[in-house]
Design a protein around this nucleic acid. Sequence first.
DNA 1: ACTTATCTATCTACCGGTAGGTAGATTGAA
DNA 2: TTCAATCTACCTACCGGTAGATAGATAAGT
Lengths: 181, 181
Amino acid sequence: MNRKQELLQVAEKKVREGGYNNFSFRELAKEIGIKSASVHYHFPTKEDLAAQLAKQYTDNFINALGNPKTLYDCGTDPIIFFASLFKHSLEQDKKMCLCGLLGAESDILPQLVRVEIKRFFRKNLAWLEQAYSYDQQLSEARVKQLAIQTISLLEGAMMISIVNNDNTIFDSALAGLISIK
Amino acid sequence: MNRKQELLQVAEKKVREGGYNNFSFRELAKEIGIKSASVHYHFPTKEDLAAQLAKQYTDNFINALGNPKTLYDCGTDPIIFFASLFKHSLEQDKKMCLCGLLGAESDILPQLVRVEIKRFFRKNLAWLEQAYSYDQQLSEARVKQLAIQTISLLEGAMMISIVNNDNTIFDSALAGLISIK
DNA sequence: ACTTATCTATCTACCGGTAGGTAGATTGAA
DNA sequence: TTCAATCTACCTACCGGTAGATAGATAAGT
């Protein structure tokens, strides 16, 4: 892994723990063993670093989701698969969704970062809408509604699970995904 | 309003915009026209201020909720009432739930603050469980599940509405409250 | 093959500004 | 005279960012 990726990895950890204001160039530098001034070689500004971090996070997530049609065709419920990615992230990293935390701080984010956070949710909602639209009985409006409810439920449940340090809370919320169908 | 309340009011605005790291004694002092050193007279430390802020926020919210039995008896759906308080907060203040934002930052909060955030959700879940339990057809386990789903959905929807600066997203999520019953 | 120029990645040293917090003096009202 | 409330003045530590230097790799011209 190159230096740039090392920096992004450390930054992701810090941001997912405490948001945009919870990392500094000095801290990132110290953790990988360089000087803070050198971080500016890889990322001109803090805004730039956070924006690239959010972009990469979104790209990785959307990539991991794949195509809902493929899942649907091989008999996997795309919605359950979507939820399982959130669950995996919570259990493995024991941290918030990067864009969930930054999203809550939207008002104070530098513009380049806010743009990337909006993109995360736009992409996720589009994916969910596509997934729900395979159910022919659902109207277009209902499909949009279900997409919003699904991601809202997952982001909210993730947060409350972290507050209580109890992943069974997330599992209880998951049950809601079936009953709202 | 006394100085202490003035400080808490300004702090609430800042924290609901950008979390725990988004306010400083200097800023608070400047906004109400005193010196930062004077803030320490009212609140010994930043941790103390934030903890009192979260405590007061919780108390006010629980107080506004009242008794679910009272609502139920006079024909008001307690769950819809609960949601309307969230909606009102989003529309009036155009800001996140204080405890929703701080909750996402749980990992980095000073202990006194984290304790208050946990209390917010414990109190809210208890209220919701009581509200759902008036439906005799629901098992105890199902009641707990519904309480978690309800507050998760609302907190998540609030966040996504703020990201997109679009309250109709919150309204779409509200529709989920009826279908998960 | 040798030289020159450029690029990459890092360094040291510094800037102005802000953070939370403290000590001790001052003010004004009961 | 006591005491709540605020002040001035200060501390140490950290912040994001900049300037300029350096060493080593790479590439291009002759």
